[in-house]
Each structure stands twice: as C-alpha cells, then as structure tokens.
Amino acid sequence: MFNPFTVAKRLREVGLVGLNSRNADYVLLHNQRKYYPRVDDKLLTKELALAAGLPVPDLYAVVREEHQIASLHEKLAPYPNFVVKPAHGSGGDGILVIHGRRGERYRRASGSFMTREEFQHHLSNGLSGLYSLGGQPDHLLVEYCVEFDPLFERVSYKGVPDIRIITFLGYPVMAMIRLPTRMSDGKANLHQGAIGVGIDIPSGITKRGVWGNEPVREHPDTEHSIVGLAIPRWPELLMIAARSYELSGLGYVGVDIVLDKNRGPMVLELNARPGLAIQIANGNGLRHRLDKIEALKKTGKLSADPAERIAFAQANFATT
C-alpha cells in the first residue's frame, strides 16, 4: 500500500534529497548567483575549462547572428560529424547531433535525415532563444562530436552516453552514466527517456540502473546488461569532477563528462541545478554523503587539494 508517511519516513532514512531541499539547502546556500554565467553559458564553461587545462570537445564554430547560419554549411564541410548546442540550453533541449551528410541533407544521430532548410530553421530557433532559459536570444556552439568508447556500444542506442558526477564543495559525491535509448532519440537526458546507471565512486563500476522511474538491469534496446561495467579512466573522471569546483566557483554542481574513444574524458557542461534522478540510479540518497562533507566543513577540514578530496570520496562514498 502507498502510505505517504511511511514512504516519506523511508526516503528520509535512505537520505533522499528532494527538489525543495536541493534548492534550499544546497543550490541557494552554496551556489552564488554571480557564478551562474560560468555554467549557464556553455561557451564560457568551455573557455574556463581550457584555461584550467581540462579537456573539452573542440569548438568548430560559434553562431551569434542569423546571417552566419547560411555560411555554416560550407564552414562545416570538413567535419562530417558535429554537434550543435545552444549556449544557454537547459536539459539537453535544442542539441542536434549530426552524423554525416548526403549532399544538402544532414543525417541525424537517430539515422533520420533533415534537409538543409530544416537544419537552418533549427539553428535560427536556437538563436532566437527557443531552447534557452527564459527565452533569451542565444548563441550556438558547433563542436566536435564525440566518438564514444566501444565499451558503451552495446549499451547505448545511437547518441553519446555521458557521465554525470555531482560535486559538493569539490568532493565528488555521486555518479551515474546516462545511456541513450531509442526513446530518448540518442540524447542522454533521463527525462527524455535515457537510462541512468549508478556508478560506485570508489571502484568506478556500475551498480544498478533506472529507466523512467523504475529500476532496470538491461538496456531496453540492446538487451545487454548495464550492471557491472567498469568505467575506463575512472580516476581521471573523478579528477575532472573535483577540479570543476575551483573552475566554476559553485559549491553544488553537476559535471557532465563524455568518454571519447581516442581522446579520453572531456567536459561537456556543468550544471548549477543538477537533477535528482541520480539518486534513483544509484539506489542511494545524497543526504548522508553531503552531510559528511558538511561535517568536514564545520570542523574546518575541507581540503583544497583535489587529490585529497578524491581520496576522501573514494573512502566514504561507496554505493550501497
């Protein structure tokens, strides 16, 4: 039976952080608004990451004005694969993944084709702010399309799986990998139908997954197990997550990282209000882990050294 009180009690025991709590206790208290542009504008994020020496996908072009769209077709000729992103897009809205061209037509990640006209309309929608927070006019990034690690070939449907790590005051606290499905149209966003798979922080091995709001063990399209996968170059991923604190200035931040076949982990974007589904994917609540870091803060033991922070995280944040 669904009894709200017992469910709420059980969720508190698990340590689930709800939306109100995330906003009131973490985002509002630890994320200063003046740093938001650093993560809301993906172009700025990319520049900051480059300056800090963190790997990012190459930038092919920036579209700021309507008239630049027309010339894009020629400008992008050398790159068969690329991704178009609105700089202020939220939740993966407006991201277009192109896998090659046939003359005037673009082939999308899903395999369907779009005409050059449709492609340009999509871009101009993006420019006018259709996908941006608050509908502000936006600029677009055209960047390197990641060739994902073969490890994930069997557990993703088109698109690029990415890894989300939540970092609190520089400590990586929880991680998951998001696997695109047929339903998500190759996108790695959970609310669009991607699968979230929780990753054990100490080992970098996937533990359990969630599709929608329900637990899953196999990829619904490829039927391969999504449990027990070891994420390659896991320590590097943790290092990127830990250093994103200094980079962004945000205390509570979600770091999205992709694993490229040739070039290893790269920062895709940062998120000042990371979603809560990561807790379902891990089957663990965030609260107990966040409390441990708050306790460090209270005793003044917060570390300024990313390596030390990672060591603390690996010692304390095993997925149960």
Partner: peptide, 24 residues
C-alpha cells in the same frame, strides 16, 4: 520559502528508492 521537505509527488517519483534494497 524555506520548506525543504519532500513534495507529495516526489514520494511517488522516488518510491523505488523507498523499497528495501535488493528488491527490484
């Protein structure tokens, strides 16, 4: 404005977490 408890709909959204571990 400082209510940081669960929303009613979250109880249903996260009910998978409320199950005893090992199940599902």
């Amino acid at each position: 404005g400082r209510y940081s408890g669960y929303r009613l709909t979250e109880l249903s959204r996260f009910r998978a977490l409320a199950r005893p571990p090992g199940e599902g």
